[in-house]
Amino acid sequence: MKKIMSFLIAALLLISCEKGTKSSVTLPTSIGNTNKILVVAKGNEWAGKIGDEIRTVFGEHQVGLPQPETLLSVSQIDPTGFKSFMRNGKAILFIKKGQKESVTVEKNKYAAPQVIVYATAKNEEGIVNLINKRGKEIIKIFQKEDIKFIQNIFKKERLDETKFKTTQNLGISIDIPKRFKLVDDTGDFLWLRQHLKSGIARGDGTNNVLIYSVPLINEGSVADNITEVRDSIGKKYIPGSKEGMYMITEQAYTPFTYKAEIDGKKAYETRGKWEVKNDFMAGPFLNYTVVDKKNNRLIVFEGFTYAPSVNKRNFLFELEAIAKSMKIK
Rank of each mutant, 00 (worst) to 15 (best):
K3A: 08
F7N: 00
I9Y: 01
A10G: 04
A11D: 00
L12A: 11
L13E: 02
K22D: 10
L27W: 02
T29L: 14
S30A: 00
I31D: 09
G32E: 02
L38F: 01
V39Q: 02
K42I: 08
N44P: 06
D52T: 12
E53I: 09
R55P: 04
T56A: 10
E60G: 14
Q62S: 09
P68H: 09
P68S: 10
T70F: 05
L71P: 01
S75H: 09
P79T: 06
M86H: 13
R87G: 03
K90G: 02
F94S: 09
F94L: 08
K97L: 04
Q99P: 11
E101G: 04
E101Y: 02
K107Q: 11
K109W: 07
Y110E: 06
Q114A: 04
Q114H: 07
V117Y: 04
A121K: 02
N123K: 05
E125N: 14
I138W: 00
E145V: 03
F149N: 00
I150N: 06
N152H: 08
I153T: 10
K156P: 08
K156D: 14
E157M: 07
L159H: 00
T162G: 08
K165T: 08
K165A: 07
G171T: 13
G171V: 11
S173L: 06
I174G: 03
I174T: 07
D175F: 07
P177S: 04
V183R: 06
D188G: 08
G199A: 02
N208V: 12
I211K: 00
V214Q: 05
N218E: 09
E219M: 11
G220S: 13
N225Q: 13
N225H: 12
T227H: 07
E228C: 10
D231E: 12
K235S: 03
S241F: 11
S241A: 14
G244T: 04
T249D: 10
E250M: 04
Q251G: 13
T254S: 13
K259E: 08
I262L: 08
E275S: 12
K277R: 14
P284S: 04
F285L: 06
L286N: 05
Y288L: 00
Y288I: 03
T289G: 02
K294T: 14
N296R: 14
N296Q: 15
S309E: 15
S325P: 08
